[in-house]
Amino acid sequence: MNTPSSEPQLKIYCEDINKTFIQKGHMEVPVIRNISLEVEENEFLVVLGPGQCGKSTLLRIIAGLETPDTGYVALDGFPVTGPGPDRGLVFQGYMLFAWNTVMGNVEMGLKLRGVPKQERRAVAHHYIRLVGLEGFENHYPHQLSGGMKQRVGIARAYANSPKVMLLDEPFGQLDAQTRMFMQHETSRIWEHEKRTVIFVTNNIDEALFLADRIVLMEGKLPGRIKKEYIVNLPRPRDHENPDLLELRALITSETELVL
């Protein structure tokens, strides 16, 4: 892997991960095969792959919600043994707490860690504003549109101050226009509060718009990494940028073979 001059710090390290699920009691389904991954501090890594190639499983393993059969995940050099607040996960389905307001959802992580009410309200409010939901603090999830729900999910993860943000196809359920808007927002938020991000998507334009680096996954199970691409373009990006289009053509040509 090529390393920039300023001695980047390794944030997440996945060492040769394998995962096989047992379905219906006996059927073995290999889902992750020999995945090794390095993510640098404040890097925006996009994992690009079509449906059903083990993307969610990979994120869940990094989050500590699943244990790999072989290999391990390390965060700042320490092996991950389970889920923890140092890794924030934005779920593929929104997974908001329907019984809590926007505020209640966003402040949940801080509440669980015993942060006093005043303080956690202030932090939660900061992130609610950052994702553009000011004024909706007392709304319940069912009163929000899909895009707004996902912002709550993002704010909820951010408010817990994780070192790494893991986003699982966060905009997969949105219409094309809202999706584009949310991509701009994500880019804006990330530049505002830099974090190490692993962002999963099946959308190549989304990947090109957001990523510092794209990891392309094989189009079928078991999921494995097919190729990597560095996206060294200034932000905010333009979908019509010729360099971007060139890279898009390259990635597409290599994806179509497996799709």
């Binding site: 889920p83 779920f91 669980l112 993860a157």
Partner: peptide, 21 residues
């Protein structure tokens, strides 16, 4: 939905938090 418990886990909550929240 079991993933709702995962949300609590990822936010750093305990089994008790899962039940209560």
């Amino acid at each position: 939905e079991p993933e709702l418990y995962d949300v609590i886990k990822v936010l750093g909550g305990s089994r008790k938090d899962e039940v209560v929240q």
